[in-house]
């Protein structure tokens, strides 16, 4: 199987630079990173990809068995690294992908040398002595709305993203694939994302790690960032003055700068 085609792998930036792998979270695809890629590309070899089931990946390679656990996504990461022959990469994971990076680093330590966790959360559900931001009722309502397919991720979403005549520079291909997730696949991804408790896995992280959180995040509150930082002794916590769950979009310059500062300090 051609892994690079399966995961729609894109490689750009400095040919000789250290490898930085950017992994999207639940929702869209590698285009989430497009605003910070130029800043990274000057000094780093930038690897972008879509998880199987997302973006322009090969949907025929998707199976509910493999992608019902975060290990399946971690396997995608390891297989892309193997296909490219990269070792000791800097893995930048957004949202649920931050935990995918933790699992990949544990399973294949020679592949992952550094972790950057953007807006991470090891557990979205509130627990005793832990605030994940979502009550059990919230999760139930969320899963029910996924099952009933009422939100915009229903197939009714498709016409909305079919092109944008006012901004032709975006390109048809981009607008068609970006966020256009198969509803059944999105449901499995969401269940995996919001029902997994990965808090125990944090303790196994030994590589240098940057925890990058937003000051106002509706999905991963500040308490969660602090928890992740505390659970990983080798981590640094940086709080961006940014709103929302996607600082690479809402505050791309600050996000890129925080990344570059951290990586520069590592060298």
């Amino acid at each position: 199987m051609d892994i690079l085609r399966r995961n729609n792998v894109t490689v750009t930036g400095s040919a000789d630079g250290p490898v930085v792998m950017l992994a999207h979270g639940f929702g869209c695809d590698q285009n989430m990173w497009r605003l910070i890629v130029p800043a990274l590309a000057e000094r780093y070899r930038v690897v972008l990809f879509d998880y199987v089931g997302s973006g322009s990946s090969d949907l025929t390679a998707w199976s509910p068995e493999r992608y019902s656990s975060l290990q399946g996504y971690a396997q995608d990461v390891i297989e892309v690294c193997e296909a490219l022959g990269h070792e000791q990469v800097v893995f930048v994971g957004h949202s649920v992908s931050a935990m995918v990076g933790v699992l990949a680093a544990e399973a294949a330590p020679e592949r992952i040398g550094t972790l950057v966790m953007v807006a991470p959360s090891p557990c979205y559900l509130d627990d005793e002595g832990y605030r994940g931001g979502f009550s059990a009722e919230d999760i139930d309502e969320l899963l029910a709305s996924l099952e009933s397919n009422y939100l915009g991720w229903s197939s009714a979403m498709a016409p909305v993203i079919m092109g944008n005549p006012e901004r032709p520079e975006l390109g048809q291909e981009l607008t068609n694939s970006f966020c256009a997730t198969d509803p059944d696949i999105a449901r499995v991804f969401a269940r995996t994302t919001f029902l997994t408790d990965s808090r125990e896995d944090l303790k196994k992280v030994s590589v240098p790690t940057l925890v990058l959180e937003c000051s106002q995040d509706a999905i991963a509150p500040r308490e969660v960032g602090a928890y992740v930082h505390a659970a990983i002794p080798s981590s640094r916590l940086v709080t961006l003055d940014a709103t929302g769950h996607c600082p690479q979009l809402s505050a791309p310059e600050a996000t890129a700068q925080a990344l570059l500062d951290f990586l520069g300090a590592q060298r």
Partner: peptide, 12 residues
């Protein structure tokens, strides 16, 4: 957070 905001940011 996962779809609407990123799409709006990109497409306007």
């Amino acid at each position: 957070e996962t779809h609407f905001a990123p799409l709006l940011q990109m497409q306007g």
